[in-house]
Design a protein around this nucleic acid. Structure first.
Lengths: 117, 117
DNA sequence: TCAATATATGAACATATACTCATATAGGAG
DNA sequence: CTCCTATATGAGTATATGTTCATATATTGA
């Protein structure tokens, strides 16, 4: 690891090299970032919260979140693509529910961090 | 809870009302979203990974992440504002390190989700 | 004092994101 | 078949975000 002009005495080039070689691949990191990005929006958090309480149709979610049906549908599509929610159809109605038991664990850790302040 | 034209038989207006009254405040949800947003970017994830391995100065982080010093500084500022990293100054050098032991827990749960696919 | 180094910061810019509007699709009731 | 309802989807748009470039600040050494 060439430390061109950096004079930081804190760490050796060998340690730098070692740390660098152990980081996950860029692709893996991007997948992880995209996963967290899903939780980085208030509308999606609300949807996930409501679905954690009850299986719901799109219209009811729109009512609860207080947003247009189209907006909710778009977000549900995203959540579906990332396997955070699943759905079942009953004639023209689509019922959504959570598809991942890790969601609650993640919320829990986040709340722990936020309550520290 | 007025279910205007929705015919979904899945849930009663009373249950809807109950669920709606128990959701955290909008402000709380926004704080949570902003917290997760921090993990929703590859550059920041790399920074956090490297800092989880070793205290590092800005220049070394820039070298490791392979990005301009300015970009790293901007991201470190963000992470600092949200208390994910802390720093100490030694003459002109600024050494950064993790400021939250929950970060590793969060990574762990995320990996569990991603490995399910 | 002056030059060099490490970092921080503001402005500008390109891209990503979330929403709205309009419309398509598809099932059920009449 | 036709209308109505529930949902999905594409285009357009305003805002948010991440990066770069240029420059400011601050400390050290000559």
């Amino acid at each position: 690891m060439k430390k061109q002009n950096c004079l930081c005495k804190n760490i050796s080039p060998e340690e730098m090299e070692d740390i660098k070689t152990h980081i996950p691949e860029d692709k893996t990191i991007q997948v992880m970032a995209d996963f967290f990005k899903l939780f980085g929006d208030g509308t999606r958090l609300k949807i996930l919260y409501y679905l954690s309480r009850h299986e719901l149709c799109v219209a009811d979610l729109a009512l609860l979140v207080n947003m247009q049906q189209s907006a909710i549908s778009h977000q549900l599509m995203l959540l579906r693509l990332h396997r955070l929610v699943k759905y079942r159809k009953e004639s023209t109605t689509t019922y959504y529910s959570l598809d991942d038991e890790h969601i609650n664990s993640i919320f829990k850790v986040a709340l722990e961090h936020l309550q520290e302040q």
